[in-house]
Write a protein that binds this DNA or RNA. Structure first.
Lengths: 204, 204
DNA sequence: TGCATTTACTAAACACTGTTTATTATATTC
DNA sequence: GAATATAATAAACAGTGTTTAGTAAATGCA
């Protein structure tokens, strides 16, 4: 009975079709304008069909959120070749900032929006976030072992690095950097400078 | 003709009634569940009446957002008495973090949500934000003049201080600190420690 | 092959949302 | 007292996420 397997494949194909359409619409129109009806129209199915493959809208956006994390993780992994852990940490940070500038909608979904997080409420783990944070944590641990950055608890340091970088880009993404009354590229340059200063200050 | 003035007063009273109701509902039920209809029911008027006093929902929340800033500003001003600018900066930062912990909904509206910012799109200024950021900027300028913190551009330093602090609390408010898998009060303690470390590292 | 059952899908509805329009009742002016 | 201006609203519009009941096709079994 290969029918069961074919059905399984078709079910997965349909999920992919929905996710692909939702992702494309999300990046083009933003979260609010990507409604179940918009997706349904795009894939030429009725809105109700989508609910046969996903529990609710949040579940769709959790999947997009996970895909975005896998993109970021690949960008992180590209720095595995950097031997010096401090240089690797700096490179990962720059990649994080650049990713947010290049993909503000993905960044928003990954680190700011509430929508995808409702899926993890009182659940075991946030695997995708764990993976990205874990990468930073490992690199920081190496830096501490080799006494390349100021001695401190590794968790405190990881939280600090992440918070600082997230603060920079999230204030930008959510348009609070307008208080600077500066051109967009000037603001970005300042954020980059700010990040470089921060990283240098981590040094022993 | 004192009628015009009375009408003006009545118009302002009605605006206050709407804002007070909206604020109370927002703090109790959150942004999403505070609908125009909910507010209308609460003040015992029809939904359409609200539109005679406010352009749209965003305008209501912009006003709440401004009130929240005036609360934060008062808390900031309480530190005016601290002579040492570095100690003042540290105190303001602690107040900022505490404010976010105590009023997560206000904090969200002030620094994370898009809703109130649509009112300032391509406009002259974000007065409330300017005021709070200005206070930090002034304090940092004093610190730099008295060579109490590491020499750097005052804007870069202000952005850094704000970003770091915002990063800490916004990751907490938007529930990303769940990756730590720790009790809520432990997380808060770590965020406080992280902040104290950061402030100490600013020192010359 | 023919019939029963399961699966896949959808039209329509439900309960909401922000917002606008046409209408009515009240207050003010002349 | 009649004409005008103001204040408030009922009802509708165009959306939203989601559920329910019903249909048509594919599958399992005799």
């Amino acid at each position: 009975m290969a029918i069961k397997e074919r059905k399984e494949r078709e079910k997965q194909d349909m999920r992919n079709l929905i996710i692909d359409s939702a992702t494309q619409l999300f990046l083009k129109l933003g979260y609010d304008k990507t409604s179940i009806r918009t997706i349904a129209e795009d894939i030429e199915y009725s809105p109700a069909t989508i609910y046969l493959y996903f529990k609710d809208k949040d579940e769709i956006f959790f999947e997009i959120h996970e895909n975005a994390f896998s993109i970021l993780e690949k960008l992180f992994r590209a720095h595995d070749v950097i031997e010096n852990p401090f240089e690797r940490l700096a490179a990962v940070g720059r990649t994080y900032v650049q990713f947010a500038f290049d993909n503000p909608d993905y960044y928003d979904l990954m680190f700011i929006m509430r929508a995808p997080m409702t899926q993890i409420k009182n659940a075991e783990k946030w695997a995708a976030g764990d993976c990205a944070f874990g990468y930073v944590l490992e690199t920081i641990t190496e830096c501490l072992e080799q006494k390349m950055i100021k001695p401190a608890d590794k968790f405190i340091t990881a939280i600090s690095v992440w918070s600082f970088t997230h603060g920079l880009v999230s204030l930008y993404v959510r348009e609070r950097m307008c208080i600077l009354q500066m051109e967009d590229d000037v603001v970005r340059a300042m954020l980059n400078t700010s990040f470089e200063n921060f990283v240098q200050n981590l040094k022993t």
